[in-house]
Simulated scan of single mutants.
Amino acid sequence: MKDTFTSATAEPEAAPDDRMVPSQGSFTRPRRFKTATRPPNVEAELIVEHSTKNVPAPLVNEPSAPVAPPRDLWGLLHEQEPGKDQHILEGSQAAEDFRATDVSRAFDLLRTRLRQTVKQNGWINIGIASPTKGCGSTFTAANLAASLSRVPSSRTVLMDFNMRAPGMAKVLDMDPSQSGNLRDFLAGDVAISDYIQRVSDTLAIGLADTALEDAAEILQDPATAVSLAEMRAALNPDIVLFDLPPLLTFDDTAAFLPQLDGVLLVSDGTQTMAKHLAECERVLGNQVPLLGVILNRARASSIERF
């Protein structure tokens, strides 16, 4: 997908190292996944060291060129409306009806507590994971993102990082083929404005549709950290939610923990056991705070009403 943004006035040419500002009509960024490099020429290094051994250092350093601040790309993101066959995002009668349920109100309560916590600690990156498959982490991430997006003048980014079994597009009835590939975005080959899609003034989503068996390796690659840092600088979100794979099934989420400020754990009232939660706490350890455990599919008789 090519960026179709055009300006009525001429823009100055972007600096070569600025991977967020359009250069010659595109947002293309160079690939940063590790590539093979030639070994250093030890002999040449010795010659250079010998030739400069007695040369005094300059007294005055040359001034470096000023670095332009990142450009806000939120308004340049491609837009995609969610389909009518979903009840989470606004735009359908089902979504309006869902807003009146106890489940929706529970997510609003979680939203407010989360916003207070991240603001108090200066956090942005929040992971949502479950101990095992089928606990409802994708459902939780989508509903929490929708609730956050209803806060005026806020910005929330929702990323589908369950790379082995991506499901956010299906839950939100959106077409992931309209955006660039997740692997290429994390490598730096797809522009931020060509991958992240905006569904409202306050919510943007990064979708995935292809299962990646090397997900753990991708999440640990330094290029991924750089691309996500660029995205945060370009979009300036209040919160970035990452829908992550089961914590105890693969090492994907464990590999991504250094990139997170906190984790919300989703447990299933029909299958999650105390030993699963204890093992998740052990995996998290001191790497990232466990912000709370969300109980999904609880028995109605166990829910206290106010």
Rank of each mutant, 00 (worst) to 15 (best):
K53L: 15
K53P: 02
K53V: 05
N54L: 13
N54A: 08
V55F: 09
V55T: 13
V55N: 05
V55A: 05
P56A: 01
P56L: 04
P56D: 00
P56Y: 09
A57S: 07
A57V: 09
A57C: 04
P58L: 12
P58A: 12
P58K: 14
L59S: 12
L59A: 11
L59D: 12
L59W: 03
V60A: 02
V60D: 00
V60Q: 06
V60F: 13
N61P: 06
N61Q: 14
N61T: 02
E62Y: 12
E62M: 15
E62A: 14
P63D: 10
P63I: 08
P63E: 13
P63L: 12
S64R: 12
A65S: 04
A65E: 12
A65N: 06
A65Q: 09
A65Y: 13
P66F: 03
P66L: 03
V67I: 15
V67Q: 13
A68I: 04
P69E: 11
P69G: 01
P69C: 00
P70T: 06
P70Q: 06
R71I: 07
R71K: 11
R71Y: 07
R71W: 08
D72K: 13
D72H: 10
D72N: 15
L73F: 01
L73C: 13
L73K: 03
L73D: 00
W74D: 01
G75D: 03
L76Y: 04
L76S: 10
L76V: 05
L77P: 00
L77I: 08
L77Y: 02
H78E: 08
H78F: 04
H78I: 03
E79S: 11
E79N: 11
E79L: 02
E79P: 08
E79G: 00
E79M: 07
E79I: 03
Q80T: 11
Q80Y: 14
Q80V: 14
Q80G: 07
Q80M: 14
E81R: 12
E81H: 06
P82F: 05
P82C: 02
P82K: 01
P82A: 08
P82W: 02
P82T: 08
G83K: 01
G83P: 14
G83F: 07
K84W: 10
D85H: 13
D85W: 10
Q86E: 11
Q86T: 10
Q86M: 09
Q86C: 13
I88G: 01
I88P: 03
I88Q: 00
L89E: 03
L89M: 04
L89Q: 02
L89V: 05
L89F: 13
E90C: 11
E90A: 15
G91T: 04
G91I: 06
G91A: 08
S92T: 14
S92M: 06
S92Q: 06
S92K: 03
S92E: 06
S92N: 09
